[in-house]
Design a protein around this nucleic acid. Structure first.
Lengths: 196, 196
DNA sequence: ACGGTCCTATGACGATCGTCATAGGAGGAG
DNA sequence: CTCCTCCTATGACGATCGTCATAGGACCGT
């Protein structure tokens, strides 16, 4: 569980992301993070003087960055990039996750949103940043397909919304069906939108 | 906050639903529920011998039922029901909620999913029941519009997924934009699907 | 007056929470 | 060796968590 190649600090951030995905930030304790990451207990205080908020915030930023970088790898997987193909690519990652590792872990952005969005938590800023970083990566890919930026933004919002909702349904039902459905229904629509 | 017309038991279930919507089930304490509902402290133990799990479970079932009944009111709002109109009707409720009451409260199903889906919590069963009750109500409405049941199920999955994801984005960004976008993008598609 | 059922009041239990205070060890620079 | 900085170890704090045990009051039919 603890990848010793990375330092304790990075391991804690990563472990936080994983635990938040499974049970939300509210139910994720710092002691649990320390144990899960295999990091020294005293290091938490040292690396994260901002406390739990800082830890969760960095985990969210890390997650947003990961998602954005993943989206950016799409062009390297096909010779003919399409909006529908990108959407399918994003969804497939989650289907693989669920079939391989079960339905315990969801999206960290959704988890954080559910527990503390709209409130006055200090993590709200980084939650927003994580989501926007991810969404902007999707927009950039669509723009590369010669879709006008304004329209790309709308499509990216639709894609991410449908994906997140399908992730939720899939976890509740313990079935990847919703993921398959949204990609089947939406991909043609997205491709049609690209040819205007 | 405490509607004295209803008994303490029902008030506690309702309060639980509201608190779960705002901060997730993990961060919602039973003492907080008691205080929020204005119910006598000793009544919790009496009405909910199953503890917090029972309380949260009933709140979820109540929420699913509420959503289903809300969906069923759509035909009474228009003389020409369409899938896109139904979707817009569902989304509008959330736009009104956010504009009127801010972005603190989200969807209870999403909140519960984020905190305890995929795990072995006892609430998983009722979480699943709540979502399916809601989704089935949508399916029923689509079937009323002469859409074949099999296809209606797929469209309902798409609608609920897009709605949930848009709710998430809207809360994070504190902006109803995503909700407006998904209904604008999806309504024509849904209506086109009805004419096959 | 009675026993009985329904509801409420209250205090405590052990566990866990996030945070803090304090100190010790490691290791390079002078 | 000494000093300084970086990292780690450990124990404790007050608060809150879900749950439980126990008892008291309200109101009933009889």
């Amino acid at each position: 569980m603890a990848d010793d190649k990375r330092g304790p600090r990075e391991r804690m951030v990563y472990s936080t992301a994983q635990l938040v995905r499974a049970q939300g930030p509210a139910a994720t304790g710092v002691r649990e993070v320390v144990e899960h990451s295999g990091a020294p207990r005293g290091s938490f205080q040292h690396y994260f003087p901002g406390g739990k908020d800082q830890l969760v915030g960095e985990a969210l930023l890390w997650s947003g960055d990961f998602a954005a970088r993943w989206v950016a790898t799409y062009p390297r997987t096909t010779s003919r990039p399409t909006p529908g193909g990108l959407f399918a690519y994003m969804v497939k990652q989650w289907k693989d996750e669920f079939t391989a590792r079960g339905y315990r872990r969801g999206c960290p952005v959704m988890a954080a949103t559910a527990d503390l969005a709209g409130g006055d938590s200090a993590v709200n800023e980084q939650l927003r940043a994580a989501l926007e970083r991810w969404e902007r990566a999707v927009v950039d890919e669509l723009v590369r397909m010669d879709i006008p930026r304004r329209r790309a933004r709308r499509l990216a919002t639709l894609m991410i919304s449908a994906l997140e909702g399908a992730i939720m349904s899939a976890r509740v039902r313990r079935d990847v069906g919703p993921l398959t459905t949204v990609v089947a229904e939406l991909s043609p629509v997205l491709n049609a939108a690209a040819e205007r």
